[in-house]
Every structure is written in C-alpha cells, then in structure tokens.
Write a protein that binds this DNA or RNA. Structure first.
Lengths: 202, 202
DNA sequence: GTCTATAGGCAGATAGAC
DNA sequence: GTCTATCTGCCTATAGAC
C-alpha cells in the first residue's frame, strides 16, 4: 500500500498538464514536447508512463469521467431539489470555463474524426453518463412537481448537455464566462415549474 | 469581365476541399498535403493561391460567413413568421450536420487558442452576425405575439446559437443527426407563444 | 524512472524552372 | 499557374546508457 503524500505521482502530473493543454488547445494542438517542457522532464520519459499519445488520451478521458461522476455523486448527496441540482451541474461547467478551458470531452468531440477509436468510444460513454444522470434528475423533478417540461426526460437531458457544451464553446472566443451564465440560466429556466414551488398535490 | 463557366476556379476548388476537411477534422487536423492530394495538384501550387495556412483559414471563414448571410437573407425574403424563421435557421445547421460536418466556425471556436489572431476575430464576427439576425427575428416575433420569452432578445439569441452549436458538437460522435433535431426542436419550442397563434392585440 | 541520441515522417513554406 | 526539388522544423516514437 503506497504511503500517503502531498506529492502527486509523475503520471498524475503528466495527466494534469496534458489535460489543461487539451482543454485549451485540443488534442491535435498539443505535443509531448509541450507537456515535457512544462514539467521539466524529457519527451522520452513521457513514453515510459504513456506509451503513445492515444493511451495518454484514453487515460485523460478516463480520469476526467471519473472525476465528473464523483462531482455528480456529491451533488446527489447534497439533497438539493431538482432545479438546484441542474444549476449545480451547470456550475461544474462554469468552473471549467473560468479556467479558460473547454470541457475536455466537448473539445475532443470536435476533433472526434481524427482520434483513435478507443478515445472516441470513451467520449460517447462520458456523454451517455451525463445524460443518464440529467434524465434522472429531470424525472425526479417532474415527479415532485418542482420541474415542468414536455416529452421524454432523455430528450430534455440531451438538450441540456448540448446547450451547456455549446455555451462553453461559443463563450471562449469572447473570453467572456458571463456569456455562459446567461445561456445556462436561460436554458435551465425553461425547466422550472411555473409556480416556482414544488407541487405537493402530485 | 470573366466569362461565366461551370468550372470553379482553382482557388474556389481549394476552398471547397479545405472547408470540408476543416469541418470534419479541424484546422489543426488537416494539411496542405491533404488538400493537394484530393485536388491532384501539388502543395506548392496551393501556396500560389494562398500564401500560408492562416490566409487560407481567413478566406475560409470569409466565404462561409458570406454564404451564411445570404442564406439568412433568403429566409427573410420568404416572409415566414418568426417561429418558422427560427426553424429554417436550425435547418441550415441540420444540412451541415447531415454532411457529417460541424459548423465551420463552431469547429474553429474549439481550436480558437491555437489560431492566428485574424481568424479568431473573423470567428467572433460570424457569431455576432448570427446573434444579431436571431435577435431581430426574436424581437419581431415578440412584437407580433407569435413568440413568447422573457428577458433581452440578445440573451435569447446567444442561447439559441449556443444550443444549436452544442447540439451539432455532441451529435457528431454518435453519427446521429436526429440527436440534433431533438435538441433543436426542444430549444426552439421554448420560444413558441402559448396560443400558437399571433396575438393581434399588441 | 529519467536521461541522451536519434530515427523516420510529415508539417508549412520557398526558390526557381517551365 | 503549376511543377520539382529542397529546406527547416516539429512531430511521435525507440534504443540503450545511467
């Protein structure tokens, strides 16, 4: 069992730097030289930890998806009402954008056609997991009357995911995170029940 | 004055091929070699028409924006009601996606941080023009009662643009254009006036 | 685990012949 | 306008010493 320490492992630090680079510049816009330079090690050392760029990319998505799933679990544990959960979800994106970054998987979705198959599959799994969580929140909210919307919750979940990813995408060229907030609030506002309070009769 | 002909000029054919490559693979995912190969000419010839990749990129956005503006003008001339105009606007995106392409400027927005300044500025102008047109349609629709929404029309326009760009971005990894339709219809549905008919009292 | 050294390929770009 | 030939630089990746 490894001893607990404040120092992150080299592999973790590589992932940290690479993650930032991909979220800002894209998978085709960063290189081993970028990562090695920022870490003060050589390109050859990177290949010891991640044999190729594809494997590094897979590890990046894997870790990002796990961290995201943990954040969704934390939102669930806070026992907020459905609308507050949706806003907490949007706040996750907001934090990413304030770091001048795009969602990792949103960025990779743009480059999808140039990526190794394994990375593409991992991206789809990330979106699926997010939509499943959103659909659960939407169903619960409609059941207790705190949310109001027509149609399938899975369709609504797709709309929310797409809206938030798009809001990040468009906000970045403006260097204006508030553009994201405006679009996110509007989007989520369309799901609030008219009364504003849960309907206790259902 | 040049004689009219069915043959596109070499510069135009370069733009055609490069446009497709950027919309599928991104600006950092295509090369002069790709374009030259598909056209059956050499890389050196490309440099005669476009001195550098940056200039080619600028020309790409310029032409794309002009074509988009023309399409918006055509929608205006069809004298549809506001909601129909919004759906016609979404249909523009739909057509791009059915060609397995991302919106050119949506793709470039992801890569924004790696692009020459002139390209970045042109991308912002594209988004600005789209939002201005959308805001005009939204204002007109609210005035004649065919649309209903709260807040500033410019904020609503941002939400629509972001939602459609995001819906394209997320739909592509699924190779499922219908995912776009679902999100787009839901998004635009939130702007329809409750009665469905124009309010003649305003 | 990290290094030096290097391979082999592809990138964007230029000079100059035709 | 398009070509051949070439340059320089960066890319991913590997071999092998320490």
């Amino acid at each position: 069992m490894p001893v607990a320490t404040n120092e992150a492992s080299t592999a973790e630090r590589i992932l940290d730097v690479a993650e930032g680079l991909v979220q800002v510049r894209g998978f085709n816009g960063f290189s081993y030289a970028h990562v090695a330079g920022e870490l003060g090690i050589t390109k050859a050392s990177l290949h010891y930890h991640f044999p190729g760029k594809g494997e590094l990319g897979e590890a990046l998505i894997e870790r990002y998806a796990t961290r995201f799933a943990d954040a969704l679990g934390a939102i669930d544990r806070d026992a907020l009402d459905a609308l507050a959960k949706l806003h907490a979800y949007a706040e996750l994106y907001s934090g990413v954008l304030r770091g001048d970054r795009m969602c990792l998987c949103g960025m990779l979705a743009a480059e999808y056609e140039t990526l190794p198959e394994a990375m593409g599959a991992a991206i789809v799994r990330f979106f699926d997991a997010n939509e499943a969580w959103l659909a659960g929140v939407l169903d619960a909210g409609r059941d207790d009357g705190s949310l109001a919307f027509a149609g399938k919750s899975s369709d609504a979940a797709q709309t929310i995911l797409a809206g938030l990813e798009g809001a990040m995408l468009v906000a970045r060229p403006y260097h204006a995170p508030e553009r994201f907030e405006v679009a996110a609030d509007r989007l989520l506002g369309t799901f609030a029940a008219p009364s504003g309070a849960p309907n206790r009769l259902r």
